[in-house]
Design a protein around this nucleic acid. Structure first.
Length: 691
DNA sequence: GTGGTGTAG
DNA sequence: GGTTCTACACCAC
């Protein structure tokens, strides 16, 4: 923490009572100059990106139902609109509005149920998984926000001798601050803005999702600045404007990390403004909160945050809950618990780990404290049950008995009770058997098995699968539950190496474009001439070696070299599939636009794929690519990883370490369902077409 | 490990 | 202050 010592010591010497009495005076005096620490933190300068997806649930619904894209759309949970799209916002609908009020303001509002979080969870992890391809330092914050420590990506680009250090910022500069081209910190943040733009472009091109980004020197500031321009824009904060940013917050509650309770306590100290908290003697805060919290919240108020971006990895617990007006009979409780339990079991199966602790949370109705009196009880899950959790009747019964015992620890069922919420949670999740996924590894995003629930569609309902194709659509083209747009007959012309899971979620216009793409047609011919095989060994290690960090850098590398490759794959890849990264907000702004065509000339970055095409042509290396590989995805891997993969495929002489047949048998579930995403040592395979 | 609180989206 | 459905960190025990 870079707190200004002089200021702090001066404050500590000040008599607290005197200070408090003078606080009013201070507030009237207006904003103070930002602290030295705030304006220029010493030490290694990090570059942190905060990505906040625009109205996340509504975007997911618009991808699932493209016909709703232009309509006012609200996502409903119980009797509330929990979020809505910008069309609805323009018509007066707001988050957390009651359905009645929203309908009054906007009678034409279209509502979709948002109580089943499956699709949102899936997309959320797809976004995180994609970010993880750029850089392993990705921390999730809820379903729709991520922090990415892009310091290394920035450093690599800056080390490139071809890098233009006097370049312009991509997106907005907070407070319209002038850039100092000679300032090293400015240079790094400017480069960060370009990295951020590329990442946002990739998220849009590959997942069809838009979001806002903030680029700053720490998580707190990146988060605070990211919402400056909405939607689908980005803002960089230079250190000199940190004070302006923190002072723009009208209440301490607006500081991330200071919640309702803490803000209330600060209010009782007369500290409701950010300025007052910044300048409060830390001793006053220590008395109320204890030293660690006191220092932390004061640092936050000054825009100081040295917390690292901690890779989130898989969730530590899985829970399902439901709220209701009244639940007052044991049979009702039992029925609700079983419903929650079955949902949870399906999710656990998809996750692939085993749960060793079961927790039940209830909320009882009391007139005074209607919403917040949750209480819970938990117990270990006996090992024999834990290792076999499935929808099997005996297992469900065993878990139900545990839940009812936990329930009776809290509620005397002989007396009347009034519940308003039940939550069942699996925690203490442990990797099952041979899983190679671990926290902090990209493996998690790539190894989640397909949910047992909703398996019938086969395209859109693939919880947790990052990028995974399934031929189900082609096997059952009339499958009605599939997302709107997927029944388009023209899609039948798609080659089978298209990633349907991602494809199905793209906006309709982008899907059509892909269908019509000469690259798509060409590739389906070219690639399928190769021999089918499955490579299964050693590829996980590629990710753990953080090779993905090379991706943006390699793009820059290539930009500097003349395009002398007459590859038929090169231009079409970027022009027709739209994977080129275009860093301009104006390009990304319209989700339905074909962004590639609006890239300014000469600004179009290249991807490693084009270079690898050259290698293919020069050395016939293309023949080493197994047929099972989705070139679409392969093309987006960093050059170094592509090369390593090629090398590995060559070295292994295309021999899978596990025979394909045995491998397929292994992944069938006890109920004979075939998950399309499977737990497998070779997590990279999930990027590609199934064998 | 358990149970509660606080924070967050 | 309050809607829902999560998820995580932290702390006392």
């Amino acid at each position: 923490m870079d707190s200004p010592r002089e200021e702090e010591e001066e404050g500590e010497e000040e008599d607290e009572a005197e200070w408090l009495s003078r606080e009013e005076e201070r507030e009237e005096a207006g904003p103070r100059e930002p602290s030295a620490a705030c304006s220029r933190a010493p030490g290694p300068q990090r570059v942190i990106m905060h990505l906040d997806m625009d109205c996340f649930y509504a975007q997911v619904e618009m991808i699932r139902h493209p016909e709703l894209r232009e309509k006012p759309l609200g996502v409903q949970q119980k009797t509330f609109v929990i979020t809505c799209n910008y069309v609805a916002r323009d018509l007066g609908v707001k988050k957390c509005m009651t359905i009645r009020e929203a309908k009054e303001r906007c009678p034409q509002l279209v509502l979709v149920s948002g109580e089943d979080l499956t699709h949102y969870r899936e997309m959320s992890y797809k976004v995180t998984g994609l970010l993880d391809e750029f850089c392993h330092k990705v921390e999730r914050l809820g379903f729709d926000e991520n922090f990415i420590d892009i310091t290394d990506l920035v450093d690599k680009r800056l080390q490139d001798p071809q890098c233009d250090r006097a370049m312009k910022v991509s997106g907005h500069v907070y407070n319209h601050q002038a850039v100092d081209p000679g300032d090293r910190t400015h240079q790094r943040l400017i480069m960060g803005s370009h990295v951020a733009a590329d990442i946002r472009a990739a998220v849009h091109n590959r997942l069809g999702m838009t979001g806002c980004a903030g680029i700053a020197s720490n998580k707190l500031l990146a988060k605070l600045v990211s919402g400056t321009f909405k939607p689908n824009q980005q803002t960089v904060l230079f250190p000199e404007s940190c004070g302006h940013l923190t002072h723009s917050l009208d209440h301490v509650h607006k500081i991330p990390g200071i919640g309702y309770k803490t803000a209330q306590r600060l209010d009782t100290l007369g500290l409701s403004s950010v300025i007052s908290l910044q300048s409060c003697p830390v001793a006053v805060l220590e008395k109320e909160f204890g030293a660690p919290v006191a220092h932390r919240i004061q640092a936050l108020s000054r825009g100081e945050d040295d917390s690292p971006v901690t890779p989130s990895g898989p969730p530590q617990s899985l829970s399902e809950e439901d709220s209701f007006k009244k639940c007052c009979t044991v049979s009702d409780v039992r029925a609700k618990l079983e419903e929650l339990l079955r949902l949870l079991i399906n999710r656990l199966s998809a996750d692939g780990r085993s749960a060793h602790t079961l927790r039940l949370t209830i909320r009882q109705f009391t007139p005074t404290n209607k919403y917040f009196n949750r209480e819970s009880r938990q117990c270990p899950i006996p090992t024999n049950v834990a290792q076999n959790i499935s929808s099997d009747g005996a297992v469900v019964s065993a878990l139900m008995e545990l839940l009812m015992k936990l329930f009776e620890k809290m509620i005397d069922v002989r007396l009347t009770f009034h519940l308003t919420l039940l939550n069942v949670c699996f925690s203490n999740l442990k990797a099952a058997r041979s899983s190679t996924s671990s926290r902090c590894s990209i493996g998690f995003y790539l190894t989640q098995k397909k949910s047992l629930a909703g398996d019938d569609c086969g395209v859109s309902q693939t919880p947790g699968s990052c990028i995974k194709s399934t031929p189900a659509l082609f096997e059952k083209p009339d499958n009605s539950p599939c997302p709107a747009g997927n029944n388009d007959e023209s899609l039948m012309s798609l080659p089978d190496n298209i990633d349907m899971d991602v494809f199905s979620q793209l906006p309709e216009d982008i899907r059509k474009e892909i269908v019509q793409s000469p690259y798509t047609a060409k590739r389906s011919k070219t690639i399928q001439t190769n021999r089918p095989t499955t490579s299964t060994g050693g590829i996980q290690s590629f990710f753990n070696k953080a090779k993905m960090r090379q991706q943006l850098h390699s793009a820059t590398d290539e930009e500097s070299s003349p395009d002398t490759v007459p590859s038929p794959l090169r231009k079409p890849l970027r022009k027709d599939i739209g994977f080129g990264c275009c860093a301009s907000d104006s390009v990304i702004m319209d989700p339905s636009s074909t962004s590639h065509s609006t890239c300014p000339q000469g600004t179009e970055p290249n991807f490693g794929f084009a270079m690898d095409c050259t290698e293919f042509e020069d050395s016939n290396a293309m023949l080493s690519v197994p047929k099972t590989i989705d070139m679409n995805v392969f093309s987006q891997l960093p050059t170094e990883l592509q090369t390593e993969l090629m090398s590995e495929w060559k070295n292994q002489k295309l021999t899978p370490k596990i025979p394909v047949k045995k491998f397929q048998d292994k992944v069938k579930t006890s109920k004979g369902q075939r998950p399309s995403v499977i737990s497998h040592p070779n997590n990279l395979l999930k990027y590609f077409k199934p064998s």
